[in-house]
Design a protein around this nucleic acid. Structure first.
Length: 291
DNA sequence: ATCTGTCCCTGGACGC
DNA sequence: TGCGTCCAGGGACAGA
């Protein structure tokens, strides 16, 4: 599930394949709510454009195009942005996987879930956007046009300070975890890193946001940033579908302390990790270390 | 204004 | 073995 680190890893590795290249051909799947810009308009708008830069805002990627247009991408839950030639079992459907010999590593063939495929004017790798569950989004923004999804984003999680969180949590009765997931306050934190950050800070996810002191907020932001940076350094978390543009799996899932470790001993005190549901999301914490 | 619940989608896990 | 059912989760949205 792509959160800030997975999106940032994707950006760093895919940027060299995109920036400075001119899009020659665009292939899409049929229209669906994945396409905020309908496929035909998207193809028309993109063909012939040069990509000048690739930026990240929270969990969004924004490509700056040569004539002032921008291409906005969100990976959703199961989005995969990669180059053709990437090799990973995560890029295959279950049926193609089942037909494989145990040691076989076949190349990827664009399938029904490959919603966007960019071919470039010069030779070189194509870039593909695959998203099985279609929670991802793609939109072409005309010069000067904005998208409320981007406008609403708060400060990037890597730039945020404890004071930002403290200011945003005043008077809020919601559980602190819910607040961490709100992209309008701090952008980029998702379910995994919220749980991990709260554990590092020793704060229970259910605590009312307004009950956090200034030092609590400082510790929490510090904890969240520590796990985000570490995850970027290890290539992100490949817990379900995430795969980097070259097909590598991330390794951060091996460093998880509480996320999806229900019943396992807390790494600090050996109390079994507890799982509850907050904001319709699985939430994991140590009942002893997190108060 | 804030908060909660519902919905989009598909594959994988699980039970019989 | 094979089918059915449930669940995961980001974020938009409706309604309280």
């Amino acid at each position: 599930m792509p959160e800030l680190p997975e999106v940032e890893v994707t950006r760093r590795r895919i940027a060299p394949l995109l920036v400075g290249r001119r899009i020659a051909r665009v292939h899409t799947t049929a229209d669906s709510y994945f396409f905020l810009t309908p496929p035909d308009a998207l193809a028309r708008g993109l063909e012939g454009r040069e990509i000048r830069a690739l930026e990240r805002r929270g969990k969004y990627l924004v490509a700056q195009l040569g004539d002032g247009q921008r291409l906005m991408l969100h990976l959703g839950m199961s989005g995969q942005l990669f180059a053709d030639g990437a090799r990973s079992l995560r890029l295959l459907s279950a049926t193609s996987r089942a037909s494989l010999a145990p040691d076989e590593q076949p190349g990827f063939e664009p399938d029904a879930h490959t919603h966007l495929r960019l071919t470039f004017a010069d030779a070189g790798a194509e870039v593909l956007f695959r998203d099985v569950r279609k929670f991802g989004k793609v939109r072409l923004l005309e010069p000067g046009e904005s998208d409320p999804r981007l406008d609403r984003l708060g400060i990037d999680a890597l730039e945020a300070s404890g004071d930002d969180l403290h200011a945003g949590s005043r008077g809020r009765r919601v559980a602190i975890k819910n607040l961490l997931l709100q992209q309008s306050l701090i952008a980029g934190i998702g379910n995994i890193y919220a749980d991990e950050g709260l554990f590092l800070a020793g704060i229970r996810p259910t605590r009312a946001a307004r009950r956090l002191t200034r030092p609590d907020c400082a510790r929490l932001v510090e904890g969240v940033q520590r796990v985000l940076r570490r995850s970027i350094d290890t290539g992100g978390s490949s817990i379900s579908d995430f795969v980097s543009p070259d097909g590598d799996d991330g390794a951060y899932q091996d460093e998880r302390r509480v996320y999806a470790r229900t019943g396992e001993p807390c790494p600090q005190c050996a109390t079994p990790i507890r799982r509850i549901v907050l904001a319709q999301r699985g939430t994991h914490y140590c009942p002893t270390c997190q108060r």
